[in-house]
Design a protein around this nucleic acid. Structure first.
Lengths: 126, 126
DNA sequence: TTACGTGCAAAAAATTTGCAGTTTC
DNA sequence: GAAACTGCAAATTTTTTGCACGTAA
């Protein structure tokens, strides 16, 4: 556990929205100016492998990069408005049921799952 | 409608598995040697916007690129085995129900949705 | 004809790697 | 002290863009 990793983890823990690698780098450098881009990528890969964070695309509304958020107890769906760009989250029992069905019907042991939906939010579909 | 686009479309239509941009380029060039990488990307963007193809990550099992498949009537889930790399598809009524719930409960008009699951297939979890 | 599509080459964006030196435990 | 981690710079990988030319309708 190094100072650089501590800074990156701190940023992930306190983030209020989904961050991409570049944003994460900038924020981590405010806590420890020595943090390098490659350390960010290396740490993200590590956290991903440990299952501590989730990687998102958010429907690539901005660019081709990835976004990250820490994994919480409860999985959630991400919805991205194709017009205003707003990202919404939604927890659903039906989603849990669906995953249960996949595990059972396909005999597939789920490690990670990602449901992203693109469309128009209530404000934008008026 | 140009010869290049025809070649790209033909490849998409006859593909038996998910192709990334580089594979699509190679296959399209076998039909029309003049097809350029940028035309592939431009055509993919077009087809994506028209809702004729879906873009997938397949959990980034190989590299950071995207995969493409033509959109069929019925949406399906993609499962990627983290050990053997096999990609499986699964159609589920519960998935349809989940999307209905999102549209209703969140007043969100769904245009495109993508559910990807990473884990271990039946053969690999033995 | 004329708007749209194309190849080419170069740039941009996103991520990874080799390496020599540092830090953690 | 050994193993793991780091910054740096350069390389890869993936996608996009500008531009002059070509082609479908």
């Amino acid at each position: 556990m190094t100072g650089q990793r501590r800074a990156i983890l701190r940023v992930m823990e306190t983030a209020t929205k989904h961050l991409d690698a570049a944003q994460l780098l900038r924020k981590a450098q405010k806590l420890d100016a020595s943090v390098d881009r490659s350390t960010v990528y290396r740490t993200l890969k590590l956290l991903k492998r440990q299952g501590l964070i989730d990687e998102l695309d958010l429907m690539h509304i901005h660019g081709e990069g990835h976004y990250y958020e820490r994994k919480l107890n409860r999985d959630h769906i991400h919805m991205a408005c194709l017009r205003c760009g707003k990202i919404m989250e939604f927890v659903s029992d039906i989603f849990e049921k669906l995953k249960g069905q996949v595990e059972k019907d396909c005999r597939f042991r789920i490690v990670v799952s990602r449901l992203e939906i693109g469309g128009y939010c209530s404000a934008c579909s008026k």
